[in-house]
Structure formats: structure tokens, C-alpha cells
């Protein structure tokens, strides 16, 4: 490609920030297979990205220019959404205008991207919808998963009843969404999945303050992170029960975790793929419990879940599989 030329060879677009080592792994795999790939951060628009899209007859004729290179948007075969930042309009504007201008950028550049007939991993709207845990659990049950008995409520009495009658005092609380708040410097606040004790019940009236999700605590033999990429399931056993610190929520203490490649039964693999597809996704990282009785219990699906650290631990071909799916442009 040369400056100003439109390139008509298939292009794979990775949306992420430049320091994203995970995105770089996929980029490298695509390049090794001699396909064109471009890592793009939407925050570069409009300052460093130029878009020209003209509607003629029934087709958009569109190009965009990045770092002096011009690309035909119609050449994009697939888009991998990793960790892009929001469109950034630079200038000293009041916040209201700033938001308006950035939304214009989103609806312009983002709107054009959405009009492309290509594979998205994952489609943004599907990803957003997939983030709702109640919906995940509902669909999981529909495709045959075992799920923990679950209560979502702001009613203290409902929690008390659930705690004693459904959970026999073995209950956990987990946030419905997020639970991670950056602080200043390197500090942050976080809410992990946590065990609810009798002491906590003294504060039950505070449940009225917002929606809360409670589940019966499921006995764990070990846990599995099953990453679905198209029709492939890469699964890793996470030994989380070696330490109290990681036993309820393994994210709370990575140093206590041990990993090994784990081959799920075919039926469970199928259920993983079915769930991800029903959520409208191509990629999904599922958190599962394997009970001492060998039962597989679905906890949640992370539509943008991390996988790089598991690639380091196990050498499973996460980046390679993603590259193959993106190159074929089919899920």
C-alpha cells in the first residue's frame, strides 16, 4: 500500500489502544498468515484519522486514512473489538459540547463501521446486551446449563428467606455489573464475589439501596475458564481452592492460582458454543465451576474476557484461533 492509494485486499481491523499486548498477539498472527491487518484506536478519530464516505446509488463509497495510508472500508473482512477508547475531540470545549462532538464522531465513524457487511468479534450491541447477567443466566438455563439458585432483589426479607431456606446459610453476593473503581495513583476499589455471613445479615436493610445479586454458594472442586472463539472452545482448569484468598473469587488472588489445560466433555463444549451464539457473540469467556461430584455449573459469560495470561500459562492457541476466525470472516 502506498500513501493515497486505496487498498482492495481484504483487511482485518483490530480496534484497540496501541499498548494492548493482547491485540498485538492477534495482529502478529494475522501478519504471519500474510493477511492485511490494522490496529486502530477509535480515539484517533477525528484528529489522526480521516474519513470520507459518499453515498452513491445504493452503495457507500468510503475510505479512511490512518498514518498516511488510505484504506477502502469495503475491504474490511472482519473487526476484532478489543479495548478501543472512545472517540476524542480535542479542544477546549464545555463538557456538553465535548459530549456532543464525540457523539457525532461515534455516529459518523462508528455508524459507517456498523454499515459494513463483515464479521464482528464481537458486535458492540450484542456485547452490551450480553453484559446483563440475568439475561445470561436465563439463556444458560434454556440451553441446558446448570446454574446456581439465584436471587436478584432490593428486598431485605427476600434475602433473609433465600439465605436460610434456599442456601442453608451458604450464600454469596456478586455485583451485577463491574464492581471495579479506579482510585488515584495505583489504588483501586473492587467488589469481588464474596461470601455472605450471618454477621452481614445485620445490615440487610441496606439491600434496599440498589439491586443485588445473591446465589447459593456452589462447592468447587476446581474452576474452568472456557473461551469460545467461533466453533472452538479453549478451556483451562483453574485450581482456585488451594487458598482461602482465591476460593470464592479467583480474581482476588492470582498468585494462589494454578492452571492446566482441561478438555471439557463434548456436551459441555456444545453448551458453551450454544450459549455464546445465543448471546449473539463470536467470542465469549465462560466461567464454570466443576463440583466435587463432577457437575458443570455455569457462572457467567465475559464477552470481552481476558485470555492472554492463560496463553502464557498454557500455550493454548488463543491468538492463533482468533486470527483464523478473523481471516475467514466467518464465525
Amino acid at each position: 500500500m502506498t500513501k493515497g492509494d486505496e487498498d482492495t485486499q481484504p483487511l482485518i481491523l483490530i480496534l484497540s489502544h496501541r499498548d494492548d499486548s493482547t491485540a498485538r498477539r492477534v495482529e502478529e498472527q494475522i501478519r504471519q498468515r500474510n493477511h492485511h491487518v490494522l490496529l486502530l484506536d477509535t480515539a484517533d478519530f477525528p484528529e489522526w484519522l480521516t474519513l470520507a464516505a459518499t453515498l452513491k446509488q445504493e452503495h457507500w463509497q468510503r475510505t479512511f486514512t490512518s498514518d498516511g495510508m488510505s484504506y477502502a472500508l469495503s475491504s474490511i473482512r472482519s473487526i476484532y473489538v478489543r479495548r478501543p477508547n472512545h472517540y476524542q475531540v480535542r479542544g477546549d470545549f464545555p463538557e456538553t459540547l465535548q459530549v456532543f462532538l464525540e457523539n457525532e464522531a461515534n455516529h459518523g465513524f462508528g455508524g459507517i463501521l456498523r454499515s459494513l457487511d463483515c464479521l464482528w468479534v464481537n458486535a458492540l450491541e450484542a456485547q452490551r446486551l450480553a453484559g446483563y447477567k440475568p439475561r445470561q443466566l436465563h439463556i444458560a438455563r434454556e440451553v441446558g446449563w446448570s446454574t446456581p439458585p439465584t436471587l436478584i432483589t432490593n428486598d431485605p426479607l427476600a434475602v433473609r428467606t433465600f439465605f436460610f431456606e434456599e442456601c442453608q446459610q451458604e450464600m454469596i453476593f456478586k455485583p451485577l455489573h463491574g464492581g471495579f473503581f479506579l482510585g488515584r495513583g495505583s489504588s483501586y476499589h473492587v467488589i469481588y464475589t464474596s461470601r455472605v455471613t450471618l454477621d452481614h445479615l445485620k445490615e440487610l436493610d441496606r439491600v434496599k439501596g440498589t439491586a443485588h445479586l445473591f446465589q447459593r454458594s456452589i462447592k468447587k472442586h476446581f474452576e474452568v475458564r472456557a473461551t469460545v472463539i467461533g466453533q472452538t472452545v479453549l478451556s483451562v482448569a483453574i485450581e482456585s481452592q488451594l487458598s482461602e484468598a482465591s476460593s470464592v473469587d479467583w480474581r482476588a488472588s492470582y498468585k494462589d492460582l494454578r492452571y492446566h489445560i482441561y478438555d471439557l466433555p463434548e456436551r459441555i463444549k456444545e453448551q458453551c458454543i450454544q450459549l455464546v451464539q445465543r448471546l449473539g457473540l463470536v467470542f465469549g469467556a465462560l466461567d464454570l465451576i466443576v463440583t466435587p461430584d463432577g457437575e458443570y455449573v455455569f457462572l457467567e459469560c465475559n464477552s470481552g474476557g481476558q485470555w492472554e495470561w492463560l496463553a502464557v500459562e498454557t500455550n493454548l492457541p488463543f491468538a492463533q484461533t482468533l486470527a483464523e476466525v478473523l481471516i475467514t470472516g466467518k464465525s
Binding site: F173, P175, S187, Y188, V190, V207, K208, T210
Partner: peptide
């Protein structure tokens, strides 16, 4: 709210 009982500060 009850959820904040489980908020932890980390580095």
C-alpha cells in the same frame, strides 16, 4: 447499599 460491605481497596 449492602453491596458496599464487600468493597475492598487494593493497589
Amino acid at each position: 447499599p449492602f453491596a458496599l460491605l464487600f468493597l475492598r481497596t487494593r493497589i
